[in-house]
Structure formats: structure tokens, C-alpha cells
Design a protein around this nucleic acid. Structure first.
Lengths: 247, 247
DNA sequence: CGGTCGTTTGATTACGATCAAACGAAGTGG
DNA sequence: CCACTTCGTTTGATCGTAATCAAACGACCG
């Protein structure tokens, strides 16, 4: 069923990756109200244009945000995993400009914007931590822009794998080498701005070069350093305080 | 020399585009300390890796943020104009992950992070307004991702022109049709993820189609609606409260 | 009046898109 | 348990947009 851990604890663990929280702050966060829910792959958690009352905290599973051009092409603009807050902006911006869908089955805690922003107002250190969380997302978005604008297919795919791996390390979803791979090749294509067939060929190329192995639901990194080189990946932009693996 | 307006007023005007501020908030913002400075084209206002004490408020002129791949390609990730805050994140994130350079001669007010965050802590409504400002930037970044990943050259360039025009309207830098164009074609190329020669050809194509005219320092829009169509531009993502021109 | 920087034009190349079809795995229902 | 469907992956052939290479041109500046 649902994750056993008290949901705010998962959020605290995420925030603690980049911001030192006091015991007091943690206790306060633990009082947050929430409602549990779960979503199936492909289901929308938010649609573009929605006016939302809640933000979502991913407890288990994966989700992604995307935007579509008028001629029907989709661009994935974000990926969410355990501890990530979805639509935190919804408490501040009137309407959401992109949709969010589950990538796998996912458990989510819905937290009312009002409750969260009350805490943020009364406890500036919590406000800062949340704000910083959105800034880390912005930092990730900038790296995606660099990939989309200035890296070739091989670099984009490698970079994407490294990022997902690095973030899974941060979320303690993986111990080192083997990471969960919830994406179809079409989804990878929409994330890195390529076509599915070219993603397929690129993945094959990287596998042939022995950077990783495994296909469907997980992926074993065989040469992390080589992959980082191939993708021009420097993990600094994820801005963790604790960097478990070599940068 | 320097803009005559009291710098915080310019910031207030920008924030007021998306957030209603009370008289009280405005008065408080007007007490912000600052130091005036000016920068020449190409000069760095921030370098990647800097630990900063101040953020910058653009009073006059233009600037851009960029990131460079290890093989030397540059991606412009943001454009700043009057009222925009540069490196607001610097007060929260330990190091800056991208550099910011002046695009033209620019006047800047440097505001200490500490002062700004003290205000934000004591006046939650100001904190929200600033936070929202960073969220608008994130929203713009998402649209850039869509362009970079899923739009062709013609669409990218058109979209970029529309965005710059729309934002200049918001900043009251232009009345309607004729907008300031501070970019070289190489800079446009680095913003939209193309090569300079292809940007040149694309711009010529759009000029031949009579969407706009003018070359160097300003650019006259002749068919705003056509250009928005060509660029698949919908201005909602800039999230202004007051939308002076037709959306 | 050179020198520098940015724009323009032409010729050629290549990376990734597109089109098309087969293959394989997982799930469903008879 | 086996057809049958569906979804995702894989492979091949061809095409096209934008990159690359190269050089001339034009504007501005000292």
C-alpha cells in the first residue's frame, strides 16, 4: 500500500540534502497536514491551466512534467522522484503552465498550499528551504537547456542517465551502480529532444561501449566515470550538501 | 549617468507585474540599501562558481546568463532587462552555477542579499513576491526548454523575438511595435541553440515574410500575430497581471 | 585608412529525422 | 494454454534541416 514512513519525513530528508534544518523546523514540518493518494502510469496529477489547492510530495514512484507545442510535439521538462515536491509553485502562481503525469505507479502525499505557506511565513528558515528547493529545480532546468541547445545525442543521453542516477543516489533509491529506469525510450526522447529511434540507437551505442547494461526496469552502470565524461556531466548543479558518490 | 528613478521603484514596478503589493510593502522595499554600478558590454557581473554578497537589479540595459559545455559551446540560459533581478538565488544557494554578462552598457543596483532576505523574512508578502519572481523565471526557462527541444529554427527565432518583445512591453521599454534589439546574431544563436549562420538565414526568411523589419539596434514588428503564430508563442507563461498587448 | 567585429552568401557535409516494417514481451480473453 | 492484441524496441533505408567550412562584405572606431 502506502509507504510506511511519515510523509513529512521524506520531505525533510529531501530538504536536508541541500539545507540544514533545525530540530525545531523538522518538528514543525512534521505537523503538516496531508492526504494520501496514488496514481497509475500516465495519469495526470496536474493539467496545464489548473488552479490547484495542493502540492504533491512523491513518496514512491516517478512522475514527469511536460509541455506540448501547438504542432503536437511533447517536451518533458522535469522528472520527479521520492522526496520531490510537485507544483510547489502552485501556491504562488495562479495557474500551472505545464502538466504533470505519473511515470510509474506512484504514491503521493497532497499537502494544502495554505498549510505549507503558513509554515513558510511563520518559520523563515522553512521558507528558505522550500525556496531553495525550487531554485535547485531551476538549476536543473538550466542544465537541461544546455543539453537541449548545445549537446549532441550521445552527450544528451549520457547526461540524462547521469542526472537520474545522481538524483536517485540523493533520494537513496539506489546503492551506487544499479538504478531504477522508469522510462520508455519515447519518454527519454521527449526529455532530451530527440526521436525515439535515435534514442534507441544512441542507447545501443553507449551499451556497446560498456558504459552500462540492462534494459527495461533497471540499468546497471558499469563505467560511471566514462559515462560522466561522455555526457559532460558535473553534478554540482544538483547542489546537494552530501555528495555520496564521487562528483 | 544613472537612472533617475529610485532603484527600488523599478523593482517594485517589476514585482507589481505579477503580484499585488501593499502600500506598506512598497514603502518597506523603498528602504532597501543598494550600491549603484555600471558595466560595459561583455563584462561579467557574476562568474560561475562565485560566492556572492549581492544580487543585481537592472536599471538600464540588458544582460544574459550563460553556461558553457566542456567542449566550448555556449548556451545562453536567460536574458535580463530593466526590473529584472540577477542572482537572487545567490542569497540562498552557496555558489552560482552560471555566469552573467552585460549585453549592452547597463546600470545596475547591487542589493545585499542579507538586506533582501531580512525583508523577506519579516514581510512574508515580500518574500512571496520575490519567490514568485524566481518562479516566473523558471516558467520562462521551461518555455526555452520546449523551444530548444521541440521547435525548428523558424519557430525558435520567432518565439525568441516574441518573448523579448513581450517582456519589453512589460518593462515599459517599448511602445508596441518597435523593440530594442541588443543581440548580435551569434548571441541569438547561443540563446536558441543554433549556429550564427543559420540564425542569419532564418532572420532573413522571417524578414522576407514581412514579420518585422530593421536590423541592428531595434526591430520593428510588422505582423505581431503572424510572428506569434510562426513561433507558437503564447504569452501566458510570462505571468503578468497586466497584459498590455493582445495575448 | 587600416583593423576589428558582425553580417552575409555560397558550397558541402552530417547528424538526426522520418518513413516503414519486423520483432519481442507482457497482458487478455476465449 | 494458446491465439491475439498492445505497447515498446529494434533495424533498415532515405531524406532534410541545420552544421560546418570558407570567404567576402559592410559598419563602426581609433
Amino acid at each position: 500500500m502506502f509507504a510506511q514512513t511519515h510523509p513529512p519525513e521524506i520531505m525533510i530528508a529531501k530538504l536536508a540534502q541541500h539545507t540544514a534544518l533545525s530540530i525545531d523546523d523538522c518538528a514543525t514540518l512534521n505537523t503538516l497536514p496531508y492526504r494520501l493518494g496514488s496514481v497509475e502510469p500516465g495519469a495526470y496529477m496536474i493539467r496545464a491551466g489548473d488552479k490547484t489547492q495542493n502540492c504533491g510530495l512523491i513518496l514512491k514512484g516517478f512522475a514527469f512534467g511536460s509541455s506540448t507545442t501547438s504542432d503536437g510535439h511533447r517536451q518533458i521538462v522535469s522528472v520527479y522522484m521520492r522526496g520531490d515536491l510537485i507544483n510547489l509553485a502552485g501556491g504562488i502562481m495562479p495557474v500551472t503552465d505545464h502538466g504533470v503525469q505519473a511515470l510509474t505507479h506512484a504514491d503521493v502525499a497532497y499537502i494544502p498550499h495554505d498549510a505549507l505557506f503558513d509554515l513558510a511565513s511563520q518559520h523563515p528558515s522553512i521558507g528558505r528551504a522550500l525556496w531553495r528547493d525550487t531554485l535547485v529545480d531551476a538549476s536543473i532546468a538550466r542544465q537541461w537547456m544546455v543539453s537541449l541547445g548545445r549537446r549532441n545525442a550521445r552527450q544528451r543521453v549520457s547526461h540524462f542517465i547521469c542526472e537520474i542516477g545522481r538524483r536517485q543516489n540523493g533520494a537513496e533509491l539506489t546503492d551506487g551502480d544499479v538504478l531504477v529506469w522508469p522510462f520508455t525510450q519515447e519518454q527519454v526522447a521527449d526529455a532530451v529532444g530527440l526521436t525515439p529511434v535515435h534514442v534507441n540507437r544512441t542507447l545501443h551505442g553507449l551499451r556497446d561501449e560498456r558504459f552500462f547494461s540492462g534494459h527495461r526496469h533497471n540499468l546497471t552502470i558499469m563505467d560511471a566515470e566514462g559515462l560522466r565524461d561522455a555526457g559532460d556531466f558535473r553534478s554540482g548543479y544538483i547542489h546537494s550538501v552530501n555528495q555520496p558518490l564521487a562528483a
